[in-house]
């Protein structure tokens, strides 16, 4: 296995369990996404970009870290595509690389205030770091 786009695409599809071909491009996932304004690529774009093998722009996109894991797009897609699972798989493809953590433990103290629940920290670490 090399690092070709084709292999990466297969890996993302395998790890997410998503079949992008089921998408009918209705846009409902993006319409319901609370992070829409912050995401440069929206959930429906993740779906067709992965389908087309257009993955490099996604790997470089800050959108990966703006998704809130709210499961709204998973719940509301009329075709059961579950776009957030692709966002997750692409994000993992990025942060699983050595030294590619988006958030480091040392960064955390500066981001805290005294009321911040532990849940926020463990969740962010799970989403942004390996």
């Amino acid at each position: 296995m090399n690092n070709s786009t084709e292999n990466l695409q297969k890996e993302i599809i395998r790890s997410s369990g998503v079949n992008p071909k089921k998408c009918m491009r209705c846009g409902k996932c993006s319409a319901t996404c609370p992070a829409y304004d912050e995401m440069e690529y929206h959930p429906h774009q993740f779906v067709y970009m992965v389908e087309n093998g257009d993955i490099q722009p996604l790997l470089e996109s800050k959108s990966l870290f703006q998704c809130l894991t709210c499961f709204a797009c998973i719940e509301r897609c009329p075709r059961g595509v579950e776009p957030a699972k692709l966002v997750e798989a692409v994000r993992l493809a990025v942060i699983r690389k050595q030294g590619a953590n988006h958030l480091k433990a040392d960064d955390i103290p500066a981001l805290l205030d005294e009321d911040m629940p532990q849940q926020a920290i463990v969740s962010a670490l799970r989403k942004y770091s390996k």
Partner: peptide, 19 residues
């Protein structure tokens, strides 16, 4: 049943505020 912003509060408090 809409999102409060969740863990985004850590890195992007503005986004959490809007939600």
């Amino acid at each position: 049943n809409e999102c409060c912003g969740g863990y985004i509060a850590l890195e992007n408090p503005e986004s959490a505020k809007a939600r």
